[in-house]
């Protein structure tokens, strides 16, 4: 039986992490279908059809699907589930909201945030903020799996799957969308950026984050933060990297003024190269850093920005 990937999208294209989810799904079964549910989701369905490895896209049009309310999307997933061996979603804020609801309605467990597909019923997933790796085997007939996108290389483009229109399931009438307050940024999205510059409590204020913005822009980097910096109000919540925030694995992660609590390390320790700049040479961040620089960030960051400029 095939695998169904449930794709989040913005109306025009499916999220970049859908290509990672498709790659993961391809390791569970050779036949991968993608569900694109929405209101006017034609363009998004086309973008899903272009992902290599996708055999078929199911496009479900319904006004109820416009804002991805779990109460409305989950019944559609449940209706389609009997045709599939696995339902897969990226472990982002949409997948984490929708997939467990569908799982409970189907009376099956969810494998949360798998980082490796060992076999079609066996997965590796991090527990305890990534300080242990559990290999779990699902005994359920339908397996609901959310996958951590950074652990699966995105499937390439250039595919041409067929798009099939399917009926929606309507609104459950339990919830309604009342607007979003999204952070506006020209910088690359944190979870897909090749370079990430992150700041912590050491920055001392939101104003001082401007210094990191300048560095990030020089590097074409995404901007992240530790929980401490978000809690202190220096930057918005969607900047948070860590166990309960975003998980990133860029080629280069530059941690500035971040001490390196295990909860933060959980969100970035799979980065290829890690740089830490901190005045405290005992800071735990240096234990995972490839290159550590001990000193005053207010002096070192402008110096680093200038040094990168002179190529």
């Amino acid at each position: 039986m095939a695998v169904l990937v449930v794709a989040a999208h913005d109306g025009k294209t499916v999220r970049a992490n859908v290509a990672n989810a498709v790659a993961a799904a391809g390791q569970m079964d050779a036949e991968v279908h993608v569900l694109v549910a929405g209101s006017n989701a034609g363009e998004a369905a086309k973008s899903a059809a272009a992902i290599q490895g996708v055999a078929k896209v199911l496009q479900a049009e319904d006004a109820a699907y416009a804002n991805w309310l779990a109460e409305d999307i989950a019944p559609l997933v449940v209706k389609l589930a009997p045709n599939y061996s696995h339902i897969v979603m990226a472990a982002d804020s949409v997948g984490k909201n929708v997939a467990p609801r569908a799982a409970a309605l189907l009376d099956v467990a969810q494998v949360s945030e798998a980082i490796q597909v060992v076999s079609p019923d066996t997965f590796v997933r991090p527990i305890y903020a990534g300080n242990a790796m559990a290999t779990v085997q699902s005994t359920d007939k339908i397996k609901i799996v959310t996958v951590r996108p950074t652990n699966f290389k995105a499937a390439a483009g250039g595919g041409s799957a067929t798009i099939e229109q399917i009926e929606g399931t309507g609104s459950a009438g339990l919830s309604s969308f009342a607007g979003a307050e999204l952070s506006k940024s020209e910088r690359p999205e944190l979870t897909s950026a090749k370079i990430v510059v992150s700041g912590g409590r050491g920055l001392q204020s939101g104003e001082n984050f401007k210094m990191l913005e300048t560095l990030a822009d020089k590097l074409g980097a995404g901007l992240g933060a530790s929980r401490a910096a978000v809690d202190a109000g220096y930057v918005p919540n969607d900047y948070q990297v860590g166990q309960t925030g975003k998980v990133v694995a860029p080629d280069l992660y530059i941690a500035i003024g971040i001490s390196g609590a295990i909860q933060h390390l959980a969100g970035m320790k799979d980065s290829k190269t890690i740089v830490a700049i901190n005045k405290d040479e005992e800071a735990p961040i240096f234990q995972v850093a490839d290159y550590g620089l001990v000193g005053d960030l207010f002096q070192l960051v402008p110096e680093l920005t200038a040094a990168i400029e002179k190529k």
């Binding site: 949409v94 919830s175 309604s176 969308f177 009342a178 307050e181 969607d238 975003k246």
Partner: peptide, 14 residues
């Protein structure tokens, strides 16, 4: 008010 990938989102639930 929910914390989502891009920032915050508001929903009203029964």
């Amino acid at each position: 008010k929910r914390e989502v990938d891009g920032g915050l989102e508001n929903i009203k639930i029964k």
